[in-house]
Design a protein around this nucleic acid. Structure first.
Length: 322
DNA sequence: TACACTGACCGCCATA
DNA sequence: ATTATGGCGGTCAGTG
């Protein structure tokens, strides 16, 4: 194995800056944690030079054609808003670079909507990919051969790595780190990055999915919104049934049929997500217990451990920056 | 440890 | 006849 590994980000005019900055920070932070340059982070675009990204911020880039790909390289394409994304899909240089990378490199992948560029280059037919929930329908329509997993943060299929959104691009980069150098380094880097990467509970992937799903099922849209914004206390299933004006039995049945999960369990998951967010922000276990409506610390500890596999205290220590 | 109580869950069945 | 509804009651897990 030759070091350093190269991580090459392919970008273009109008590319999403966060897709670039988040994951690339993981690799540069890894170098700092190592105290040794194990990753060479390269940013390249079709024309090179300063490329304006989202927010009109310029990034200095290499010219893609000047790059020779190697067997230990990772090539990742960033996402963008609709218009620049369409131009990227149509760009012959991006396409040929991705096609080359697919055969020559160790890993190829995308962050967020970058997956459309991979699909446009015909590289992921029949492959499993992750996408942000808001784009998964469109990807399915435009590229029906692609197997889309809307529930996952990121997905690996052989050498192909795809992530669902901006912050999950960071999760994916951390997973690459783990694959290359083990979980200890990954945790160190995650700790270093936590200040930038933590997500408030309401914006967790679970809530996102739930809210998105509820929007396609009119009946429960208001309810899910209400639940997601009232995780600070226990809401009984009976209250939920009253909220939507159904009998307890019918509500339970309809809800379970819609979300494949019982109402009580779903709300507990929402509260646990909120709790996780609070812990990441440094809240005490006792404080989180009362702020998420659990009856006792022991009840909270037990539910948290069941859901996330670690005790709240351990989780808190992992995410502490000092 | 024993115990009663509560809420969530869900099969079953009568009914609209 | 088919389907959705909603009440009943039993089981279960958690709580004090």
């Amino acid at each position: 194995m030759t070091y350093p590994r190269r991580v090459i980000f392919l970008t273009y005019a109008g590319g999403e800056l966060l897709d670039l900055v988040g994951p690339s920070s993981v690799f540069s932070t890894a170098n700092r944690v190592f105290g040794h340059k194990h990753y060479d982070v390269i940013i390249a675009s079709p024309c090179g030079g300063i490329v304006k990204h989202s927010g009109n911020i310029g990034v200095d880039t290499m010219i893609i054609e000047d790059l020779a790909f190697g067997a230990t390289d990772t090539v990742l394409i960033v996402g963008a808003e609709r218009k620049p994304l369409a131009r990227a899909i149509a760009d012959a240089q991006l396409k040929s670079a991705l096609v080359r990378a697919a055969t020559q490199c160790e890993r190829i992948g995308s962050i967020c909507s970058g997956v459309f560029v991979l699909a446009g280059a015909g590289l992921i037919d029949g492959k499993q990919v992750a996408t942000h929930w808001s784009a998964s329908d469109e990807l399915g329509v435009m590229f029906p051969q692609v197997l889309c997993n809307a529930a996952a943060l990121y997905v690996t299929d052989g050498k192909l790595w795809t992530s669902a959104g901006v912050t999950t691009g960071i999760d994916m980069a951390l997973a690459m780190l783990e694959a290359d150098h083990g979980s200890a380094l990954k945790i160190s880097v995650a700790r270093q990055l936590v200040v930038y990467a933590h997500r408030p509970g309401y914006q967790s992937q679970f809530s996102d999915l739930l809210v998105a799903h509820a929007k396609t099922n009119e009946r429960f849209t208001g309810l899910i919104d209400w639940l997601a914004t009232h995780t600070n206390r226990a809401i009984s299933v009976e209250e939920m049934a009253d909220y939507v004006g159904m009998s307890l039995r019918t509500f339970h049945r309809q809800f379970t049929a819609t979300f494949d999960e019982t109402p009580g369990k779903t709300f507990e998951n929402l509260r646990l997500d909120a709790a996780r967010g609070l812990i990441e922000q440094g809240a005490s276990i006792g404080g989180v217990t009362t702020q998420t409506g659990f009856r006792s610390e022991s009840a909270f500890r037990s539910a948290f451990k069941t859901r996330f596999g670690v005790t709240p205290l351990m989780y808190r220590q992992t995410w502490r920056t000092h």
